[in-house]
Simulated assay, not measured.
Amino acid sequence: MTSTHPFDLSGKIAIVTGASRGIGAEIARLLAGNGAHVIVSSRRQDDCQSVVDDIVAQGGSAEAIACHIGELEQIQALYDAVQSRHGRLDILINNAATNPYFGHILDTEPSVLQKTVDVNIRGYFYMSTHGARLMARHGGGAIVNVSSVNGVVPGFQQGIYSITKAAVISMTKAFAVECAEQGVRCNALLPGLTDTKFASVLVNTPAILKQALAHVPMRRVAQPSEMAGAALYLASDAASYTTGAILNVDGGYLSV
């Protein structure tokens, strides 16, 4: 059942990874603006704290806990802190990701492949398993995996990144099926081309940008804030009967 105010997250505890900038920071701000206590997480504590300070200045509730999701011991430490301080988790936004290589797939170095897999697949998996277990102890919760349109249509010269984002889509469906009985919903958000530091090589290279926008019916790059509303929906009671869904926020790119 949805509440009278289905987007109200008051009393909810949320983790947002990769939340020190870009899409993650905007999601953290919106969740906090709708009442959640948000754990802002990324690799650097100072960067996380800057987002927390902004949330608090706007009247929201948040704290910073640094975590590199490519390191399993850091994931464990994050959840130990959440368990100790709050005893529960209601929302997990898996947003942290890496894309260290832009080039022909045949030239992918083993170290690059390993780093990308460790963060984008293994990191999401263990963040989700820890999160789902903690959610299940208190009646359930919502996991939102930030994948990418590249998980459906591989990005040119972004081979290993695209492969890992396709895995995130499959992972989302697997968790949705197997965790539904525990009250844990799992959905995926697929951003299109978005103006972030992460995508700067695409957005700031005129030839690449022109080519990319030719395949986007809305003919523009998204702003990070335009991804946050979709994450709020999937995390909230408004999506109480939604699990295993793949939500494209891409200006129509995947519709062409």
Rank of each mutant, 00 (worst) to 15 (best):
V52G: 00
L202I: 05
V152Q: 13
T4M: 09
A96F: 08
D53T: 12
F156W: 14
V177G: 00
D107A: 10
V117M: 00
A32K: 10
S162T: 08
L89D: 00
I75V: 09
D47F: 04
N95L: 00
Y79N: 03
L254Q: 11
L202F: 13
A235Q: 09
Q114C: 04
G123D: 04
A166I: 06
A25L: 01
L232Y: 01
G60S: 09
V184I: 03
A238G: 12
L193R: 11
P100C: 04
R219F: 03
G70A: 03
P217F: 08
R137L: 14
A81L: 09
R43M: 06
V153P: 00
V249A: 09
M135E: 08
N204D: 15
R88K: 15
Y79G: 01
M135K: 12
V249W: 09
M227V: 01
D250I: 13
T172K: 06
S61T: 14
A228N: 08
G159C: 03
L72P: 10
T129H: 00
V201H: 15
P191C: 03
A66T: 06
P100K: 12
Y126W: 13
P206S: 11
Y233N: 09
C179A: 10
V52K: 05
L89N: 11
L190F: 12
S148V: 11
G59Q: 07
A142Y: 07
A81I: 01
T129E: 04
P217I: 08
M171D: 06
R137V: 01
S240L: 04
A214L: 06
L234D: 07
S61Q: 14
V216G: 05
G183D: 06
M127Y: 05
A199P: 04
L213I: 11
I27C: 05
D107K: 15
T4Q: 10
R122Q: 00
L189H: 04
T196R: 07
V168N: 01
H5Q: 11
E181P: 01
L190G: 06
M227Y: 04
A96G: 05
F102H: 13
A238K: 10
V201E: 11
L31T: 06
P224Y: 09
L254S: 13
L72Y: 12
V201R: 13
N248I: 00
T242R: 01
S148P: 12
Y241S: 14
Q83G: 04
T129W: 08
E226N: 12
G155W: 12
Q49H: 09
D53F: 04
